[in-house]
Design a protein around this nucleic acid. Structure first.
Length: 468
RNA sequence: GUCCCCAUCGUCUAGCCCGGUCCAGGACACCGGCCUUUCACGCCGGCGACAGGGGUUCGAAUCCCCUUGGGGACGCCA
């Protein structure tokens, strides 16, 4: 009826938003944005037992964090039963679906039998021609063809054909009156005018069933695109046992949403050799044709590298609120609006792969070291270190300003006067000031710490060395 | 077991559709080196793959077949 592109993301609220789901959401979203189409959010909560309100909130939270917004919805399938009923009645009236009173146990026996005979386990059609009237406890099944095959013209995988003998008369409506996934999706996609169904590979075997429903309804079939799964390091489908999967876990680990998105879009899709994509790049360049056909292994190292790159490309002002949030989450004290923050961030940007790393390194600028890193102290606190620190203390005390230039000049003069290389001066100072073996340059550190904070730390180190 | 899908460096991938320009390119990781007051960043270099076998062809990573391997699905879950 219209040629605008309409995609959708239909999570089932049985858990948080995981990276696999986020990726399919991303692909659908990007395709809609790229083509100026619409992106719909639909909550598939027909599994009454497992669907929870909490999961719905978790999914919203994840999408919001990622910046994936939707144009319509969220629609809830459990609120659309009247619509499903209308279509089901039509199918029943046209005898394209029928009632079945076989028990779950009976069906299970049929499946075992089929398996034993080397066939695909499925329902054998016992109630097919019984013309049973609707009754409590009965399920409604689709009357599927016994011959021929059903074709999918998959936009990412190409043509796929499944023999109809492999498809049984599956259930459209359960005995408790709740519609099944396969039926609800079709009716929703149909009534929402979804043009492209982009979803995980794991749905390919559902697709012919769904196509059969469209055909029974004489309805137009949308385009399907099945994207390969995301695998864990052991090359099986990514799942809880592979570690942190909830999208919000990645936030906790200090990843930027755009970095996660960048990583996810590249996992299974490519645009030549380009690795770095901003959200805008993705919206502009994404195509269904460039989605790969083979599954990919999720690699945190690569995500981390991409995250580092995104962090470097952001401005300190953009990073500021994110860093403060992270520091708070980690319990690292920070001045609410410390004017030094932008400068600290700029210094830490090239040496932080995640916000967590940045927060941990930023700690030195707000909290005095409570102990000295053992290896760093061993390497840098040795004979002569006290003298170096005393010299620095002396000069710092009389310093008129603590600008970067002044601090670097101060350090240089210490070297000159004591006839030492910069390394001999920077080493002990670094441990004194930060307690660590690594930090930004000493000139910068001194300048940002300022005289007032630096002096006590240096004195503490001197005291430590003298009593030791 | 049955059906479907997939197959380029350890990983993500370019190239494949429209065979030659590919003794296969990029990125992550790893290993060296340079830079350097430490750690990073940056730069330079290295390691490293067309699963195997048959065809087709003057010529195949690219086309066809088989084998093997991997993934997925077989629910009154989605």
């Amino acid at each position: 009826m219209t040629d605008t592109i309409i995609t959708r993301f239909p999570p089932s609220p049985t858990g948080y938003l995981h990276v696999g789901g986020a990726r399919t959401a991303l692909f659908n979203w990007l395709y809609a944005r790229k083509t100026g189409g619409k992106f719909i959010l639909r909550i598939e909560d027909t599994d009454i037992l497992r669907s929870t309100e909490e999961s719905v909130r978790a999914i919203f939270e994840g999408l919001e964090w990622l910046g994936i917004d939707w144009d319509e919805g969220p629609f809830y399938q459990t609120k659309r039963f009247d619509i499903y009923k209308k279509y089901l009645d039509q199918l029943l009236a046209e005898e394209k679906a029928y009632c079945c009173t076989c028990s779950a146990e009976e069906v299970e026996t049929m499946r075992e039998k089929a398996r034993a005979e080397g066939r695909n386990p499925m329902y054998d059609g016992t109630c097919r021609h019984k013309k049973l009237p609707p009754q409590p406890g009965a399920v409604v099944r689709l009357l599927t063809p016994d011959t021929g095959s059903t074709r999918i013209d998959d936009v990412v995988k190409g043509p796929i054909a499944i023999p109809n003998t492999e498809i049984d008369d599956f259930i459209l409506c359960r005995s408790d009156g709740v519609y099944t996934y396969n039926f609800a999706v079709v009716i929703d996609d149909l009534t929402m005018h979804i043009s492209h169904v982009i979803r995980g590979d794991d749905h390919v075997s559902n697709t012919p069933k769904q196509i059969l429903i469209y055909e029974a309804l004489n309805a137009p079939v949308p385009k399907f695109g099945h994207v390969p799964m995301v695998l864990g390091p052991d090359r099986t489908r990514l799942s809880k046992r592979h570690g942190a999967l909830g999208v919000m876990e990645y936030k906790k680990m200090g990843f930027l949403p755009e970095a996660l998105l960048n990583y996810l879009v590249r996992l299974g899709w490519s645009h030549g050799d380009q690795e770095f994509f901003t959200i805008e790049d993705m919206k502009e360049l994404f195509t269904l044709e460039a989605i790969g056909r083979s599954p990919g292994v999720f690699d945190v190292d690569k995500l981390t590298a991409l995250n580092a790159e995104h962090m470097q490309k952001k401005s300190p002002a953009e990073l500021l609120p994110l860093l403060l949030e992270q520091m708070t989450a980690l319990g690292i004290p920070h001045g609410p609006e410390d004017p030094r923050l932008p400068a600290i961030i700029a210094l830490l940007q090239p040496r932080s792969k995640t916000l967590v790393e940045m927060a941990q390194q930023a700690e030195s600028f707000f909290v005095d070291p409570t102990s000295y890193c053992e290896v760093a102290a061993k390497k840098n606190f040795k004979g002569g270190s006290v003298d170096v620190l005393k010299k620095i203390e002396e000069k710092l005390m009389t310093a008129e300003e603590d600008s970067l230039e002044a601090m670097e000049a101060l350090l240089q003069s210490v070297c000159d006067e004591m006839d030492l290389k910069l390394g001999k001066v920077g080493g002990p100072l670094r441990v004194a000031l930060t307690g660590k073996g690594q930090s930004p340059g000493m000139g910068e550190t001194l300048a940002l710490l300022g005289k007032e904070r630096s002096l006590p730390r240096i004195r503490a180190a001197i005291a430590h060395l003298e009593t030791f």
